[in-house]
Design a protein around this nucleic acid. Structure first.
Length: 913
RNA sequence: GCGGAGGUUGCAGAGCCUGGUCAAAUGCGACAGACUCAAGAUCUGUUUUCGUAGGAAUUCGCCGGUCCGAAUCCGGCCCUCCGCACCA
């Protein structure tokens, strides 16, 4: 079907309001959601997969008698749109180019593209533009979405709702305030997110916590930053960089020395620190310092292994347990004996052995040093114990010792916390990224034990597809700690109790699916009152009484309407989302629901969809391999995309989008269309069918039953295979066996189209109308396919014939000659008796004269089947068929018992002449 | 390292929970034949090895165990993928 035809049906659904849902007195509801898309770029085939799977589930429930609500909204919160707008405004070339490309997907006229691009200097225009295009894309894909309930996260009504949500969370005591380390740009005076950082999406930046160990000296102290404070008893000396500036500072009343850049960072990390003067390196090198806890006196040396920009620009040297330090001393004229303070079970991976084994030459071999450090670190961290050189810490595991030593250093005033980025990072505009401690940071305290337990209990009671994710989800709930929920800038809702903060984009998108149920009512309330006060939402969402007489009849009518819809639709029967949401959105969604809702309003089900890769590699904007949804309907047609996506892999596994495979799916699709197009009318006349035709009807029903069962269990691939490939193969067999294809198609066309419509709705709707069937196929009701309607006997007979066919073939293959006559002998009563006895372990009951059959029976006992039907008559009824396919005389008869080979039940003896 | 998923016959991907009927579904690809002037499409068959009678042998990451019997259960090992966060 070409795209203009698809457009026709898309318009039809829109005109008829086919997917607009409203509460029903009689029908059971089914509410399915997918997280709304972020509106800063066109969506690609990977995004489309999740919405498609949801659409298949939605359409499936519609034809199975449910009142289905599949709504959609748009996400605009956060910084990316804002940042993008800024960059376009400032004329950032790569951005302008990328967005010119994006726009050319939708716009032909270059002038128009320029105009739209210019309008993007206002972030609102970006969001609005892409929202509108996403609606078009989704419609072209045939997604059965109820657009009448749509909204964006920038809408005032949405924000009234988010305010209410945060007031509630605050009342419950889940909102807290505290200091928190964040990635920060001094230049921009703002926290930076992953999207603000150069290559932040490819190479993540995280925050590392160093212990700044204070080494006291006569005139001043040194602050040496370490990730492994448990090695403090192994210190032999201190290192400073052989380059870079050092500063003498006042820190909490002490005089300490740090590198210049470290001083600049620590200012942002909540320390009382001020500059005294710059200090020459030579001045430091002359001093002697005392290591805390051990009291060991150590000297300072310069080394290229120290980067003045990392940590404090000072490190303490533990050559016994740090390969860098070991390399450092090997490369200097100062050679202390490494002090061994950690014992590991074997000495395969010690500093010295690694140094030798990896053939490290100097401190310049940084790749090898890094790798060796990894190995050493793992070995010591997970299997190391502190030996008797460690005072009170002796005998502790490395992990225990680290915690104990950090705590003691802190208690005795010998350490400060130094935060550092996990790699050198800068913002997209080139500003340096550091770690800053934000005072008064608002966060949601997900660490609450009781809250976690309730959420885990909910997860236990939910449908999770695939079920293997149940444990992962529960594990993520365990991980959750405090989550900063507000930022200083970005698009979003202001915190109701602190107007300086904007609620961050994952925190404002947790319980919003409830808004779909009643959004239009809320809009009307807002239009009247210019606000939606919490008591209204308390009533609609939670059922608290509305203050008597506070609202007039008009507003009350809207409130009641909203409450009614919410009560009917909520909670979400299935929320479908892709794996990246597993560790964040999905658990916030669950936790926030548990916090605010109860009973039937809580989520009922979750389904996870897998990634899409293209020709073997991940989809990435920078790779330029993202195929936008908008080109799909033109290039292939939406139906083919839908078919390909649903049959190439199970929903949760990765799909590799391969051009060549799409083409073969396309072929199959076209031959299906051809079959469908050959049907001219429908019929219900089931009189006078041949055996094969009766078989066809039964096997078709069993395919449909398998379809229903599979999709219900989210085995979408299997379900579609049943009604697509399997039915097509059945039709082939029907024809080969001499059944009337056209007559059978008339019988099944209606039901088949209904089933097919969940995956290929456009061609199904087209054929449905061509056959003059009533209404839209999308709203038609599928028959029920209970086992009583399926004649298993017929299906078995046919598979018996197939089996005999195969047996004959495999014999022909071996003997390699053209047959002139094929004799088929079915087992008689004696063999049946013997086989029955053998398979039931009752060999004693066998008559004496038949005992000689037992050895052979034992041999073939796994190959027999006790059919209910009479094998001989089935064969005789089908001799014409066998004659035709083998081009030989066919003779079927009762087998006589003879020495040598025998016929057995379900496994006739075949003799070829 | 922790948590999760997984390693199946050319590829993709079932089967594993509930052991035998599994040389292992289905789709793709490849090969052969039919149709055709031809190509494509379609149809039929083959697609681990051996075999002139439907058989046999060897296979489901590796090693071992349980069992009459293991792709399936148990133990160990190797390898791959995803996540480990404040970021949408």
């Amino acid at each position: 079907m070409d795209s203009s035809n698809e457009l026709k049906w898309q318009r039809y659904w829109e005109r008829e309001g086919t997917f607009i849902a409203s509460p029903s007195e009689t029908k059971k509801k089914y509410f399915i959601t997918v997280p709304y898309p972020y509106t800063n770029a066109p969506l690609h085939i990977g995004h489309g997969r999740t919405y498609l799977l949801a659409d298949i589930i939605a359409r499936f429930h519609r034809i199975n008698g449910y009142n289905v609500l599949y709504p959609m909204a748009f996400h605009q919160s956060g910084t990316p749109i804002l940042a993008l707008s800024q960059r376009i405004r400032s004329g950032d070339e790569s951005m302008v180019k990328m967005y010119t490309n994006y726009l050319s997907l939708y716009e032909k006229d270059p002038k128009e593209i320029k105009r739209i691009l210019a309008s993007f200097s206002d972030p609102k225009n970006i969001a609005d533009y892409f929202s509108a295009e996403i609606i078009k894309d989704f419609s072209l894909m045939g997604f059965s979405i109820d657009w009448s309930r749509r909204f964006t996260t920038s809408d005032p009504v949405y924000q009234e709702f988010v305010k209410w949500q945060f007031l509630k969370l605050n009342d419950l005591g889940y909102i807290k305030k505290g200091t928190y380390p964040v990635l920060y740009s001094v230049e921009d005076e703002n926290a930076v997110g992953e999207d603000d950082i150069k290559d932040g999406d490819i190479d993540k930046v995280s925050i590392e916590e160093y212990t700044g160990v204070i080494f006291k000296g006569r005139n001043f102290s040194l602050v040496a930053a370490s990730l492994r404070p448990e090695t403090i008893f192994g210190v032999t000396n201190l290192w400073i960089s052989d380059r870079g500036d050092y500063m003498l500072c006042a820190l909490n009343g002490d005089k300490v020395v740090l590198s210049r850049s470290s001083f600049e960072k620590l200012v942002y990390q909540n320390h009382e620190i001020s500059l005294v003067r710059e200090i020459k390196r030579s001045e430091i090198l002359g001093e002697e310092f005392e290591a805390p806890l051990s009291g060991r006196k150590v000297n300072v040396y310069e080394s290229p292994i120290v980067n003045p920009d990392n940590g404090t620009g000072i490190v303490y040297s533990v050559p016994g347990h740090s390969i860098w330090d070991y390399a450092g001393i090997m490369n200097s004229n100062f050679h202390p004996d490494p002090i061994k303070i950690i014992d590991v079970p074997d000495d395969k991976n010690t500093v010295e052995s690694l140094y030798r084994r990896m053939k490290i030459q100097s401190v310049q071999d940084s790749d090898k040093l890094r790798e060796a450090t990894q190995i050493l670190y793992k070995e010591e961290y997970y299997s190391g114990r502190l030996n008797d050189q460690n005072d009170v810490y002796s005998g502790m595991s490395v992990k225990e010792a680290r915690d104990a030593i950090i705590a003691d250093l802190k208690r005795l005033g010998f350490s400060i916390v130094v935060y550092e980025t996990s790699r050198i990072a800068e913002t997209r505009s080139g500003a340096k990224v550091i770690v800053a401690i934000m005072k008064d940071q608002w966060f949601i305290d997900y660490s609450n034990r009781e809250w976690k337990d309730r959420t885990r209990a909910l997860v236990d009671s939910m449908d999770i597809f695939p079920s293997s994710y149940r444990e992962s989800i529960k594990e993520v709930i365990e991980w959750l700690r405090e989550r900063p929920c507000a930022r200083k800038r970005g698009i979003g809702t202001r915190l109701p109790f602190d107007q300086n903060w904007i609620i961050e984009s994952l925190s404002d998108s947790t319980i919003y699916p409830v808004l779909y149920t009643c959004y239009p009512y809320l809009v009307r309330i807002f239009d009247k009152k210019r606000e939606i006060s919490p008591d209204i939402l308390d009533h609609i969402m939670l059922g608290y009484p509305v203050p008597e007489g506070k609202y007039d009849g008009d507003v009350m009518a809207q409130i009641d309407g909203a409450r009614k819809e919410k009560q009917y639709w909520y909670g979400v029967d299935l929320r479908l989302t892709a794996t990246p949401h597993l560790t964040n959105h999905l658990v916030f969604y669950l936790m926030n629901h548990v916090a605010l809702f109860s009973g039937k309003d809580l989520p009922h089900g979750i389904a996870i969809s897998g990634l899409v890769i293209v020709e073997g590699s991940k989809i990435g904007k920078s790779k330029g391999n993202a195929i936008p949804l908008s080109v799909i309907s033109n290039k292939y047609s939406a139906d083919i995309y839908r078919l390909y996506m649903s049959i190439s892999a199970d929903p949760q596994s990765v799909i590799d989008w391969k051009e060549s495979e799409i083409q073969s799916v396309q072929k199959k699709y076209l031959s299906l269309v051809e079959i469908l197009s050959s049907v001219n009318s429908t019929s219900t006349d089931i009189e006078n069918m041949s055996e094969v035709e009766k078989w066809f009807i039964s096997i078709f029903r069993s395919r449909m039953a398998s379809f229903v069962d599979s999709i219900r269990n989210f085995n979408i691939r299997q379900g579609i295979v049943s009604i697509f490939f399997d039915v097509m193969n059945d039709i082939k067999r029907l024809e080969r066996r001499g059944g009337s294809r056209s007559r059978m198609l008339q019988l099944i066309a209606g039901e088949w189209l209904k089933a097919l419509s969940v995956v290929i709705p456009f061609v199904s709707e087209e054929q449905w109308h061509r056959l003059d069937l009533p209404g839209s196929v999308a709203n038609a009701q599928l028959d029920s396919y209970s086992p009583e309607n399926i004649d298993r006997d017929l299906i078995e007979k046919e598979s018996y014939i197939d089996r005999v066919e195969e047996d004959v073939r495999s014999i022909l293959k071996v003997i390699g000659k053209e047959p002139s006559r094929i004799n088929i002998y079915v087992a008689g009563d004696d063999q049946r008796k013997v086989m029955r006895a053998v398979s039931e372990n009752m060999t004693k009951s066998i008559q004496k004269n038949l005992l000689y059959l037992i050895p052979e029976a034992m041999k073939v006992r796994n190959l027999v089947s006790f059919y209910k039907f009479d094998e001989l008559s089935v064969l005789r009824e089908n001799t014409d068929y066998f004659r035709a396919i083998f081009n030989a005389e066919i003779h079927a008869d009762q087998a006589k018992i003879e020495k040598g080979k025998n016929a057995w039940p379900g496994r006739p003896l075949i003799r070829i002449e």
